[in-house]
């Protein structure tokens, strides 16, 4: 895959390095010549100096053949402009844009930017997850699907402990996808017997949370 990244700050640099390491073709456009020089020491020739909001610069960097365009500068206006140029002028099949100020997130979404990455929102979610009293932990929430991938540990008093998956009355709309047992990862079938200490990964709607908690991790009396 060819990934065109605009913005060579910490985010752009790490994205570029990770993708290069996994064998992708990468170009990174950086505005500041001094910073570009520093980036070249680690990343090599893939670093291009230029103003990545300019259509001519994006064009010269091969935006038209990019599989993914990632706008990750520290300037939200630039990121929005780059993503829209990629969408409307270069038909880049996938656009990812970083939002620095979470207040701008809505504008990015209504403007049709496919993937919006907001580090502040991600951090807020992580912290909220950690302080949450619920024993059902959200691993991944889908913004518009109404379902999430959640994780629950089977506690000693759980009604499901010692029973096969098929005998459990799972809440509507939920699906058990993985059982993590020690170092083992099991793809469960109907015969898989659930043990105390198993970590279960499920797809579930938010309304299933209460039932999952009482089935798998009831309040210890």
């Amino acid at each position: 895959m060819y990934v065109l990244i605009v913005g060579g700050g910490k985010v752009g640099f790490h994205v570029a390095r990770t993708l290069l390491d996994s064998g992708h073709e990468v170009a990174l456009i950086e505005l500041r010549p001094g910073r570009a020089q520093v980036l070249r020491k680690t990343l090599g020739d893939v670093v291009v100096v230029g103003n990545g909001t300019l259509p001519s610069v994006l064009d010269a960097a091969g935006c038209a053949r990019a599989d993914v365009l990632a706008a990750v500068t520290g300037d939200d206006a630039a990121n929005l402009l780059i993503a829209m140029l990629g969408h409307r002028q270069f038909q880049a099949p996938r656009r990812v844009a970083r939002v620095n100020d979470p207040r701008n997130e809505r504008l990015f979404r209504v403007s049709g930017v496919e993937t919006v990455v907001s580090s502040s929102s991600v951090l807020a979610e992580l912290i909220e997850r950690e302080v949450s009293a619920s024993r059902v932990r959200t691993l991944l929430a889908f913004p518009n699907g109404g379902v999430a991938i959640v994780q629950v540990d089977v506690s000693p008093r759980a009604p499901v402990a010692g029973r096969p998956v098929r005998e459990v009355r799972w809440p509507a709309g939920s699906l058990l996808i993985l059982v993590l047992r020690g170092r083992e990862v099991l793809v469960p079938g109907g015969d898989t017997v659930l043990d105390v200490g198993d970590r279960l990964v499920l797809v579930a709607p938010p309304e299933a949370e209460e039932t999952l908690q009482s089935l798998l991790a009831p309040e210890s009396a």
Binding site: A77, L80, R106, V110, S111
Partner: peptide, 15 residues
């Protein structure tokens, strides 16, 4: 600033 103008225009139109 062109990028700023673009973002303002998006906000006026979309929001």
């Amino acid at each position: 600033a062109d990028a700023t103008n673009f973002m303002i225009a998006r906000a006026v139109i979309e929001l």
